[in-house]
Design a protein around this nucleic acid. Structure first.
Length: 768
RNA sequence: GCCGGGAUGGCGGAACUGGUAGACGCACGGGACUCAAAAUCCCGCGCCCCAAAAGGCGUGCCGGUUCGAUUCCGGCUCCCGGCACCA
């Protein structure tokens, strides 16, 4: 919208129109009568309505959170808009800011979101694994290191999944935001500077994890909860305040990160776990040992294995009142406030007298003005007096509206429920939702494996808890498409700004060996930089518009080509080189059907004839059925091509029954992929009026039976030929026949036969 | 860095439960048809040696299990997705 200097509403609605045209031209069977857009007040009013219900129950709540702040544009930046620590438009060094935001308590549902994954057999394992790891249930021990500071007693709490190594603690580390760090910083300017430095860094987890691990001692000492030993507390830039208690115990002997830290700052390293098959030595024992094992150098815990030592240590800690077993989760609550214009307004009014006041239900929806044209500096809503200025719903005095909008993940968390009753204006959902839901087959990119799918599952559970729908899980079966990648072309312009060019507008240059030498923009002939091959995205402008394929080759070719390119779950680097092949195939099919029209429509119904061609035909049908079932559509397309090859090589009037049966099977297995051509041919060949309502072709098992089969013969695992045997031959018969075979004898050459392996229907391997 | 996935000819990919690696296409080479071109059809097409036959090597890399490994196990490398404000 900024680039096009257009109101986002206009831009969005025209994009919807464009994409609808594409979908319709591709011939998808969508029920457009249920269409709606999540950016209309008729939809998002229910986001607001449910948000207020959640606020009443404490599921939605307010607390501060950290955002990226561009000091030049005076704007909050998304993580994606921070490039190497600088704002994408201004190039200014980005700062962290703490601002109040609304959160949804997704962590209240951690247990169910995790355990219910087991109730989803129709979901890919990889997605369930990713979600389970994201939720991150870990069993451990929360323990306290007591200390005395300025005559006051305190306890430093940490969480560990490795309580068995507690006897190996040589230091503790706290996050920069930890109260102890703040206290120590007050009397140590050097430390204060370090704490500030830690707070300046990136908010992103990937940056946190890859940055250099740094620390500084606080001068504060705590006591080991079991031995009473003095242990120094450090501030570590790698300790997260948002996980556990914002503090960790340091066991350099048995934790990689602690080891690196200890080496860097010369902290002691203790071995307390027995290393399998290896005596302990710091030099030889590079660099650490993180496996479970028996305790050593651990006093009364020596010799205990992981489970027993954790039990014993937790029991001793509990007896001292210094710890107990504890379950900790990685999942954090969902921050939904966005300091952005184009979104669903958060329905809150800020009153100088009454504070934050929810907008009453009868005043919903709070409608977003659609005519703002953002310029990139700040949220344009703040400049709209007619939106901001209002009266307090409680006391009636002048007040200001909240200008933050909701994360658009909120919109996508329940749209599928709304499809069941998109015309319902009186409530969020009606009883039709219970009739239609759950979604039988959900389809989406693998990039949504965690966030969107987890938020939808959570939102569904909240709606269920409110009695709005009788549904535990929204999606019964899930197909996650692999990403379609394409090359990114760009130029650096003023400041940090990068301009991206669509690959369709770029011409590639090659040398005489066909090697890439460069790329230039078609419009000005000047070179562009290649940014590697990445997911197609709006921001990188590397998407492909299917329209050009449809214009050139038609919808069926575009569909067939895309299905043939790769299995849907695989990543695919886009390349339309093969589209000619798809086009040729469909044209060949069209020509074949017309050439053989009189033969096919004049033929009698299929006989139960048993011959190689008919056997081949039914093998291909079996293959197509199997591949449809396992959602591997590229090999369905292959089977269709093989079928046409088979029919073409049998295209004589004497094979009329085969041609008729084969064509009717071929059209039907191809129909989901190329619906237009197959429908036209179905009708022209007089198979029936409408292929969509034709029954699925029936596999003739009898056609697959054969009297003789060919077995591969191997000698010492090497392919040495083949032999034909009766299909009902016994193991003994096969063995005898193979050993009697002259060709086989040549390879055995008088050596003693040690073993003969017969794999029924496949091969024989002779070991000499 | 952590979590999930992937790597097979010049290219996209196939190989179902450990059993003939490279199906089906694309590209390319040769031929037919044509005055010519396009379209179409036929043949070839992993690498090495070779006139041919035969043979050897080969599924990212190193190692293991097995009569037999693209497939199973251990250890790596590189690429893709996600990492909580792209959605």
């Amino acid at each position: 919208a900024i680039k096009n200097n257009t109101a986002p509403a206009k831009w969005t609605y025209s994009n919807i129109e464009h994409m609808k045209t594409q979908l319709k031209r591709l011939g998808f069977a969508y029920d457009w009568s249920r269409e709606f857009a999540t950016c209309t007040p008729e939809y998002y009013r229910w986001n607001q309505w449910l948000f207020l219900r959640m606020l009443e129950k404490g599921i939605a709540y307010k607390k501060t959170g950290t955002v990226n702040w561009d000091p030049v544009d005076q704007t909050v930046l998304a993580n994606e808009q921070v490039i190497e620590g600088r704002g994408w438009r201004t190039g200014a060094v980005v700062e962290k800011r703490e601002i109040p935001m609304y959160y949804l308590a997704i962590t209240r549902h951690s247990e169910e979101l995790l355990s219910a994954l087991d109730s989803l057999p129709g979901w890919p394992e990889r997605v369930k694994t990713m979600q389970a790891n994201w939720i991150g249930k870990s069993f451990g021990v929360r323990l306290a290191f007591p200390y005395e500071l300025d005559g006051e007693a305190g306890r430093l709490w940490v969480f560990t999944t490795r309580a068995d190594t507690v006897m190996g603690v040589t230091f503790c580390a706290v996050a920069a935001e930890h109260p102890l760090a703040a206290r120590a910083a007050r009397r140590d300017p050097g430390l204060a500077a370090f704490v500030d430095e830690c707070k300046r860094g990136s908010v992103m987890e990937a940056d946190m994890a890859t940055m250099e691990k740094k620390g500084m001692p606080t001068g504060i000492f705590v006591s080991h909860p079991l031995t009473g030993e003095k242990i120094e507390v450090w501030v570590g830039n790698y300790v997260l305040m948002s996980y556990g208690d914002g503090a960790v115990m340091g066991v350099p002997g048995h934790d990689e990160r602690d080891f690196v830290f200890a080496r860097k700052y010369d902290l002691p390293i203790k071995q307390v776990i027995e290393v399998a098959d290896q005596p302990f030595s710091l030099e030889a024992w590079q660099p650490w040992y993180t496996d479970h094992g028996k305790c050593v150098n651990s006093g009364k815990y020596d010799g205990l294995d992981f489970d027993r030592s954790v039990d014993a240590i937790a029991a001793d800690l509990k007896a001292k009142g210094l710890g107990e077993k504890r379950v900790t989760w990685r999942l954090r609550d969902w921050g939904i406030s966005r300091q952005r214009y184009w979104g669903c307004p958060i329905p809150i009014v800020h009153c100088p007298a009454c504070g934050d006041v929810p907008v009453p239900e009868d005043q919903l929806p709070v409608v977003l003005p659609e005519d703002c044209v953002p310029d990139g500096s700040g949220n344009p809503l703040n400049k709209r007096g007619d939106f901001v200025n209002t009266d307090c719903p409680r006391c009636g005095k002048p007040a200001k509206r909240e200008t933050d909008t909701m994360d658009t993940f909120v919109d996508s968390s329940w749209y599928f429920l709304r499809y069941a009753c998109a015309d319902q204006n009186g409530k969020m959902l009606d009883e039709r939702a219970n009739y239609w839901l759950p979604v039988d087959q959900y389809i989406g990119g693998i990039e949504h494996a965690i966030l969107h799918l987890l938020y939808s599952r959570f939102w569904t559970k909240v709606m269920r808890d409110f009695g709005l729908v009788k549904l535990d899980e929204p999606f019964t079966r899930l197909l996650t498409q692999g990403m379609v990648l394409n090359e990114i072309f760009s130029r650096k312009s003023e400041g940090a700004r990068v301009q991206y060019f669509n690959p369709a507008d770029v011409e590639l240059e090659f040398d005489e060996h066909g090697k890439r030498t460069g790329a230039k923009l078609k419009s000005d002939g000047k070179p562009v930089d290649s940014g590697g091959i990445r997911t197609m995205s709006k921001s990188k402008n590397n998407g492909v518009d299917p329209q050009s394929l449809i214009d050139q080759f038609g919808a069926d070719t575009a569909r067939f080509f895309m299905m043939f390119a790769s299995p849907p779950e695989d990543t695919l680097a886009w390349n339309d080189d093969g589209v000619e092949g798809a086009y040729r195939f469909l044209r060949r099919l069209w020509k074949f059907a017309h050439d053989q029209m009189t033969v096919i429509s004049g033929a009698k119904a299929a006989t139960a004839a048993r011959d190689n061609a008919r056997r081949e035909l039914h093998l291909l049908l079996q293959q197509a059925n199997f591949d449809y079932e396992r959602r591997q559509f590229n090999t369905v397309a292959s089977a269709a091509m093989k079928m046409l090859n088979l029919l073409e090589s049998n295209a004589t009037p004497s094979r009329a029954p085969l041609l008729r049966e084969g064509t009717s099977i071929l059209l039907r297995i191809l129909s989901p992929i190329a619906p237009h051509i197959t429908q036209a041919l179905w009708r022209e060949l007089a198979f029936g009026p409408d292929i969509l309502y034709a029954p699925w072709p029936l596999l003739d098992e009898a056609a697959l039976v054969q009297d003789e089969i060919e077995l591969v013969v191997q000698v010492n695992g090497k392919h040495r030929g083949a032999i034909r045997v009766p299909s009902d031959a016994t193991r003994e018969t096969i063995e005898r026949m193979v050993l009697a075979d002259a060709n086989v004898q040549k390879y055995i050459a008088g050596q003693p036969v040690k073993k003969v392996i017969v794999v029924p229907g496949r091969l024989v391997n002779i070991v000499v």
